[in-house]
Every structure is written in structure tokens, then in C-alpha cells.
Nucleic acid binder design. Structure first.
Length: 197
DNA sequence: GAGTGGCG
DNA sequence: GTAG
């Protein structure tokens, strides 16, 4: 997968713990909600966002919006450490304007999809894994054979260039593999530039 | 259970 | 249409 870059253990255990604590504190003001597809089917992951814009899905469709769908308040700010990861590993000077926070509890998964709700695909997607390991799947943008990859806590993935529109998803989460998240599970932080610079 | 994929 |  040209354009797909994998940075194992980009965050050491102390940095993982600090980031997890910071994100969980921030999202107290923007609680995880239960999204549904435009067809009304619930996702198995729970979601919230950080930053000027947040990705949401409901019966009206997929979109980025500046406020939490339940509280109506703006999303909390993106932590500085994530802005640094975006710049250093994503190689992008323009900062992200959205950070989707997906919480995978027992049995949660994410079907194969593309991130294509952003205005300019020249900007990368930077994904940070925290907590339980996940079996990630990725394949070409145009369809075809996929490969699977285990994502551990502290790993960072970058989708850019030809891989920016890669199909990807999470087949399953390996429960109990980490004690990082209270109550267990996996937290995935996905940084994106939703609007043009 | 694993892999693939409608999809614009 | 949609990450189900």
C-alpha cells in the first residue's frame, strides 16, 4: 500500500497513558454518543470528536459539524500532542481541524469504508490507537484484495497520497489486551483536515 | 470465522 | 448513497 505509513509504538507507554487521560477528561464535556447510519442502523462503536469540526452520522447523512449532536456545544480542543503527531508523522504544516474519537468496547468493529467526507484529499489521515489491540484491514481505494494488520496501543497509521482513499476497517478488537482504558476497550483517534486550508 | 464489497 |  503505497502512501500507507505505519509507525509502531510512536507513543511510549507513558505518553499513551497521558494522552488517554487527557482525551477522557476532555470528552467529559462532549460525551460519547451512539451514531446511526443514514439507513438507521446503529454503529457498534461509540463516537465523539475534538477540534473545530466533528464527523457525525445520522439519518441525514455523513457530515462534519462544529457542535456535538446531543449537547449542541462546540467540541473540545485537540490536544497539543496530537497536533505534533500530525505535523511530524503526517508531514503536514496545515493543522487538522477534526479529530474523531471512536470507542470500541466489547465486540465493536468497523466495516470496510473510505474516509471521503473531507474537502481536499491532499491532506493525510493520521490515526492513533490506544488500549486493546485491534485487527485492522486495509485495501486499495478502487477495491481488490485487502491485508490485515494488528494495531497495538501507541501505534500510529498515516494514510496519504495513493492510500488516502484506501478502504479500511476494524475486523475485531482483542479484548483484555490492555489495561489502559478504564472499563477496557480501544480508543481510536483519527485526525483529519475536513475543510480546505 | 475469514475475506470481500454494493457505493455513484 | 453512506462507516451498517
Amino acid at each position: 500500500m503505497d502512501g500507507f505509513r505505519f509507525f509502531p509504538q510512536a507513543l511510549d507507554p507513558d505518553a499513551q497513558a497521558a494522552l488517554t487521560a487527557e482525551v477522557l477528561t476532555l470528552v467529559e464535556a462532549a460525551p460519547f454518543f451512539n451514531p446511526v447510519t443514514p439507513g438507521g442502523k446503529p454503529f457498534s462503536v461509540r463516537m465523539t470528536n475534538l477540534g473545530p469540526l466533528g464527523w457525525v452520522s445520522d439519518r441525514s447523512g455523513y457530515r462534519y459539524q462544529p457542535t456535538h449532536p446531543v449537547t449542541g456545544r462546540p467540541w473540545p480542543a485537540i490536544p497539543a500532542v496530537l497536533l505534533s503527531l500530525w505535523r511530524e508523522l503526517g508531514g503536514c504544516e496545515t493543522p487538522p481541524d477534526a479529530c474523531l474519537v471512536n470507542l470500541y468496547r466489547d465486540g465493536a468493529k468497523m466495516g470496510l469504508h473510505q474516509d471521503r467526507d473531507e474537502a481536499d484529499f491532499a491532506f493525510p489521515v493520521v490515526s492513533v490507537s490506544l488500549g486493546d489491540p485491534a485487527v485492522f484491514r486495509i485495501g486499495p481505494a478502487g477495491g481488490g484484495p485487502t491485508t490485515s494488520l494488528r494495531l497495538n496501543s501507541g501505534d500510529v497509521c498515516v494514510l496519504s497520497g495513493p492510500a488516502r482513499l484506501a478502504r479500511h476497517g476494524v475486523d475485531r478488537v482483542l479484548a483484555g489486551g490492555s489495561r489502559l482504558i478504564p472499563g477496557g476497550g480501544r480508543l481510536n483517534l483519527t485526525l483529519r483536515r475536513a475543510r480546505t486550508a
